[in-house]
Design a protein around this nucleic acid. Structure first.
Length: 469
RNA sequence: GGUCCCUUCGUCUAUCGGUUAGGACAUCUGAUUUUCAAUCAGGAAAGACGGGUUCGACUCCCGUAGGGACUGCCA
């Protein structure tokens, strides 16, 4: 890629509030911010927006951090905790008051409610009766932003949404400092983004109107506005808002379901972003080509079938040892115990089995034929196959395989063909019988591969057992 | 209620006024076949609706319908 195409001085951030796990929508937002920073050799910062002490929890903070780690979205620098910056936020609020851009509002909650209803009825945003008051009272107060005159147009140039105009009558005198003097989100984001040097803000379009509100603060302070890119939200499979009903919101649930992080990254990337006909793109490649112009304006739906396909792709190219460990871990979570000698059987088989599985869970299922114990449980079909005439086939198989010198699928395949030839029948008569004897009906790879993977000892034991059955 | 955003095959999307509207997944058909997959070949499948602008609109404008967001001393 042409490094000269870099945009200078790119600093992005992901700023989740720790009120729950890292969900799929947040993960995508983080991903876009990460990629945009990487593409431009910039920085990707992480800030925890924990100004709401009631709802923020340490567990949520941990979940977000571990979720991002799992996805491979490493942030630069130290994590900024918004709650630790309250004094700085208050300082700016006071500066805004000095500039006349903010004021003390003494409305009680009841009075506010009445004003709000009035504004609602008039089709405009809340304005405080104290917005022009200069007098100090000995009463509890909040600090509000003095919204621009009603007729003024606040314009946001958004990289995704284009130019979005908001008429100021729809902008409220929003609260900057609560009665207890603590900052609200609206103030905190602006101050933190400024202090952190954030130049590009990529976030959900539920914040689109907030950009207008926040720009009022930025302008009042005489700061430079960041570049905005408001991306559409992700919807559930039914096209409705993503909610718990759709299940699987938290990224760690995807991990538990047996998806690979690089697959989730790749899938999420294509939800709302495109680059011509490119489909499956890994993080490394995306880091070279990601651009804001590839972002779409319309919301997209989650599609687990497609996620499965993408996951299958990444499983095929994943390291076998890593997959083995993931399978073992998955099995443990499912209370499936696998003893050492079975693991020895599974390890070399991963290479073949991963070609046939969409998830780690399916990969575990694929190992079932290896994990089966003697005597095998035969399903109805295989039971019939290993009886009667089938016994002769099995007997011959035992004889030939027993003396086979090179135990690999090529030679095994030759042996099976020989059995068919010896008995004067087609492979179709032989294969199913041996397969039934070896697996009892469980799914398995190609027959010769199955035999190779089972190994000589296990193969012969299973065949003899089927014979004695 | 008000303001803002969105609308191309079932799904993710390409198209940046002129294309037989392309790709991927799913689906269907065929090939392969020793289970289940995988794989290969081929098919069907779309511009929400109604007006404009233009020689020409998926593309630009307006309206309608549908979906979404915001409208907190939450973020």
């Amino acid at each position: 890629m042409n490094q000269n195409n870099n945009i200078e001085n790119v600093i992005t951030r992901f700023a989740p509030s720790p009120t729950g796990f890292l969900h799929i929508g947040g993960a995508r937002t983080a991903l876009f911010n990460y990629l945009f920073a990487k593409r431009n050799n910039g920085k990707f910062l992480l800030r925890i927006e924990d100004t709401d002490k009631e709802r923020s929890t340490q567990e949520a903070v941990d979940a977000i951090i571990s979720g991002m780690e799992w996805l491979g979205l490493k942030h630069d620098g130290e994590i900024v905790y918004q709650s630790e910056r309250a004094a700085r936020h208050a300082e700016i609020a006071h500066e805004l008051m000095v500039k006349g851009a903010a004021f003390k509002c003494y409305m009680t909650p009841e009075e506010t409610e009445i004003e709000r209803n009035k504004a609602f009825a008039e089709g405009r945003a809340l304005r405080s009766p104290y917005r022009d008051n200069k007098e100090d009272f000995d009463k509890p107060f909040v600090v509000r932003l003095r919204a621009p005159d009603p007729a003024i147009e606040v314009i946001i140039d958004d990289k995704v949404q284009g130019q979005v105009k908001t008429i100021a009558k729809n902008l409220d005198d929003m609260i900057l400092l609560r009665t207890d003097g603590t900052p609200t989100y609206m103030l905190a984001v602006v101050v933190d983004d400024y202090d952190m040097g954030v130049t590009y803000i990529i976030r959900g379009d539920d914040h689109l109107i907030n950009a207008a509100r926040q720009s009022v603060i930025i302008d009042a302070m005489g700061w430079q506005r960041p570049v905005y890119a408001h991306i559409p939200l992700i919807h559930g499979e039914d096209g409705k808002k993503l909610s718990k009903r759709h299940g699987a919101l938290a990224v760690n649930e995807y991990e538990n379901m047996g998806y690979l992080p690089e697959a989730l990254d790749s899938y999420l990337l294509r939800l709302g972003w495109s680059h011509g006909d490119l489909d499956i793109v890994d993080l490394k490649e995306a880091s070279n080509i990601f651009s804001l112009s590839g972002l779409g304006k319309s919301p997209s739906r989650l599609d687990f079938t497609k996620l499965g396909v993408v996951n299958a792709h990444f499983m095929k190219i994943a390291d076998d040892k890593r997959l083995l460990n993931l399978v073992l871990e998955y099995a443990k979570n499912q209370d499936v115990s696998i003893d050492e000698n079975k693991i020895k059987l599974i390890e070399p088989a991963i290479k073949d089995l991963k070609e046939r599985a969409k998830t780690i869970g399916e990969l575990l299922e694929q190992t079932a034929f290896l994990r089966a114990n003697i005597p095998l449980e035969f399903n109805q079909k295989s039971k019939t196959l290993v009886e009667g005439e089938g016994k002769n086939v099995i007997a011959l198989a035992i004889e030939l395989l027993n003396t086979l010198i090179q135990w690999d699928r090529t030679h095994i395949s030759e042996t099976i063909t020989k059995i068919a030839t010896d008995r004067g029948v087609g492979l179709g008569k032989i294969g199913p019988v041996i397969r039934a004897a070896l697996t009892g009906g469980l799914v398995a790879p190609d027959l010769s591969a199955t035999i190779e993977l089972l190994g000589r000892d296990e193969t012969l034991v299973r065949l003899k057992n089927a014979l004695d059955n």
